[in-house]
Write a protein that binds this DNA or RNA. Structure first.
Lengths: 337, 337
DNA sequence: GTGAAAGCGCTAACAG
DNA sequence: CTGTTAGCGCTTTCAC
C-alpha cells in the first residue's frame, strides 16, 4: 500500500514561518512591493518549506482557471500535431498548461467541448473551428477569449453577429496565395482539367481554387470530403473513376493527399505520368513517397505558436495574422501528356 | 468593445429559485438522496437557469483538480499522437479534460512538467517516462496516481525504491515478441548482420534485440539515437557508412525508420536489394513509401485508451497490461543477396 | 430528508 | 509597508 499523501504546504505555513501575514507572502511571491528584509524572510521560508502556491486557490479566487485550451479536428493529423506543438511550445514559456480537445471537425462535438471549457472556467481558447458563428457567439459572450487557427469561421448569416466574429483574431496560412501558386504551376505545365479535393471546412481554399481556375473551372472536379480517412479515400477514388480525363489534382490537406496517392495506385493511375499531384501541407513523409510529393508547405508550428501568443495577449487588440506558404517542387507533377 | 461578461449562475441562485438550501442542490446534482419532489424542483431550477457547476469551486473543495495529464516525448510523432488520441477518446467518456505536456524525452523537462502538474493539483498522469525512478518516486509520494504507457521506468539502482516503481501500472506493446518476430523474419530470409537503431529510452526493445539475436549479435550494430530527427538521421547514416556490410536493419520507432530510408537513399543503398528494413510502428505513410515498409505494428491508440482506463480506476489495483504487436510484411525486405 | 455553516488556498480591498 | 479580513463556489459534516 502506498503511504497517505501528506498535507500540502500552504501560504499560511509560509507566513507563519516568516513571521508575517499571508497577504505579504502573496504579494512578495507575485512580485508586489515589500521591504527588502521582509521579502528575504518570505523567500527564505518559502524555499525552506518548498512551497508551491496552489493553482486551485488562486483560480477560485480569480474566477478563472489559467491555462489555454486547444481544439483541433484530429490530433493524429500531422498538421494539427505540429500546430499543437507550436502552441505547447509557446505556452510553456508562460508556464501555462494546455488542454487539448479533439472535435473530429464536428460542430456538435466542438460545442460540447466548449461547454466543458466553460465549466472549467477556462478563458483562453485556440480553435480550428468547425462550427459557425451561431456556435461561437455565445462562447464569446460568456467571456472567453478565442483565437482561431488555420481557419476562421464562416460569415454568419445573421447580420448582427458578423461583427462579433470578425473580432476574433485568427492565425492563418495564406490559402489564397498557396492555392494560386499551385494552380499556376499546374497550368504552367499545361494542365487544364484540374481536380480539387477538399474538406467541408476548407472553405477558403475551395474558394481560392475556384478563383484561381477562372475560365478553366469545372465544378464537377471540385469534390468535398468529410473529416475521416475513409471519406478522403472515397472522394479521391470517386473523382478518379468518374472523371478519368483529369490530368492533375490539388488536395486541400495531407490526408487527402495520402488518399489520392492510395486511390491512384489502386486504380493504376500513375503519378506523375497519368496524373500530377500537388498536396497542401508538407509532411515528413511527402519526401519518402514514391514519387516524392510536390507540396504547398504551411508553417504549422508557427501558426500554433503565434495563435498562442495572441491568446495570451488578449489586451492589445490583435489583428489577423497571415503566414506565407511555399510551393516545394518535388516529383509528383509532370507536363500534361 | 465587447460587452462585459455577465456573472455566472451559481449553486446559490439555483437553491434560491428552487426554494431549498445549497446543500440540497449539491446533493441532487451529484446523485445523492432527496425526495422526488425536491429533486424535481432542483432540476427544474437548474435547467431554467442553465446552471453549470463551477469546476473551480469543486476542485478547491476536493483539493484536487480533475482531469488527466498526458506526458509524451513528442506530439508530432504519429505514434504518440495516436496514443494521445486513445487517451482523449477514453477521457471524453468520463468527461475529463486532458492536459498534454511534451517532454522531448528529456528527464529534466519531464520533472518540470510534473512539478507543474502538482502545482495544478492534478492527480492523474499518464506518462511515457523519460526519467528514472529517482524522478518518479517523489511524484508518487506526492499522491498522484501514475500510469506508464509505451515504456516503463528503468529499474531503480536504489533497492528500496524498486518496489515503488513496480507498483506503477503500465500499458505496453509486447516489445519482446515484436522484436523476436522481426528478427526471426529477417534471419529466415538469410540475414546475419542485422543492425538495430533505437532511442536511448527504448531499453526494452534494445534488450529484446540482443536476446533475439543471440549468437549473431554484433554490439557495433546496435546504435542508439537521441530524441530528435537529426539524431535519428545521424545514427542511421553513421551506421550505414561505418558498416556497409550489414544486410538488414530494424528500427525502434517510426522516426528512426524514416531516417533509415532517407539515409539509405542518400548513400545510394537500395531497399530492399542492398538492405532489408523493418520498422517498429505502422504509420500511415509506411504504405506510401517506396518500397512500402515492412513493419511491426503497435496498437498505439489502444495503449492510450487502456492507460486512460487504468488511471481512472486507480481503485482496483491494476496489473500491467501487455498488448500484442503484429508483423506486417510489405516490400522492404528481401533475401540476403 | 434537509438546511446551516465551515472551510478548501488564495488574493484584493481596506485599515492601520 | 504590512496585517486583517472577506469571500470566490463548492461539498461535507452535523444538527434538526
Amino acid at each position: 500500500m502506498s503511504s497517505p499523501a501528506q498535507r500540502r504546504t500552504t501560504i499560511k505555513d509560509v507566513a507563519e514561518l516568516a513571521g508575517v501575514g499571508v497577504a505579504t507572502v502573496s504579494r512578495v511571491l507575485s512580485g508586489g512591493s515589500a521591504s527588502a528584509e521582509t521579502r528575504e524572510r518570505v523567500l527564505d521560508a518559502a524555499t525552506k518549506l518548498d512551497y508551491r502556491p496552489s493553482a486551485l486557490g488562486r483560480n477560485l479566487r480569480q474566477q478563472r482557471s489559467g491555462g489555454i485550451a486547444l481544439l483541433v479536428p484530429d490530433i493524429t493529423d500531422n498538421f494539427y500535431a505540429r500546430l499543437a506543438d507550436g502552441v505547447l511550445s509557446c505556452a510553456r514559456s508562460y508556464r501555462e498548461p494546455v488542454t487539448i480537445g479533439v472535435t473530429g471537425d464536428d460542430p456538435e462535438q466542438e460545442a460540447d467541448l466548449v461547454g466543458a471549457l466553460l465549466e472549467q472556467s477556462m478563458d483562453r481558447v485556440i480553435a480550428v473551428p468547425s462550427g459557425d458563428g451561431e456556435m461561437w457567439a455565445p462562447a464569446l459572450r460568456a467571456g472567453l477569449s478565442v483565437v482561431f487557427a488555420d481557419r476562421r469561421v464562416w460569415r454568419d448569416p445573421v447580420p448582427g453577429q458578423q461583427r462579433v466574429l470578425d473580432e476574433v483574431p485568427a492565425v492563418l496560412a495564406d490559402d489564397r496565395a498557396g492555392v494560386r501558386t499551385a494552380v499556376e504551376y499546374l497550368t504552367g505545365l499545361g494542365h487544364r482539367k484540374i481536380g480539387f479535393l477538399a474538406r467541408h471546412g476548407q472553405t477558403q481554399r475551395t474558394r481560392a481554387f475556384r478563383t484561381a481556375m477562372g475560365e478553366l473551372l469545372d465544378e464537377e472536379l471540385v469534390v468535398p470530403a468529410r473529416a475521416s480517412r475513409d471519406s478522403a479515400y472515397a472522394a479521391a477514388s470517386g473523382l478518379f473513376q468518374r472523371r478519368p480525363d483529369i490530368t492533375a489534382v490539388l488536395t486541400g490537406d495531407n490526408m487527402l493527399g495520402e488518399a489520392a496517392v492510395l486511390a491512384a495506385r489502386e486504380l493504376d493511375v500513375r503519378i506523375p505520368r497519368d496524373l500530377s499531384l500537388v498536396m497542401f501541407d508538407d509532411v515528413p513523409w511527402a519526401e519518402l513517397c514514391a514519387p516524392p510529393l510536390t507540396v504547398v508547405a504551411q508553417p504549422a508550428q508557427d501558426i500554433g505558436y503565434r495563435a498562442a501568443e495572441l491568446v495570451m495577449r488578449q489586451g492589445r487588440r490583435p489583428k489577423t495574422v497571415m503566414l506565407p506558404t511555399q510551393l516545394i517542387v518535388r516529383g509528383s507533377c509532370g507536363p500534361r501528356r
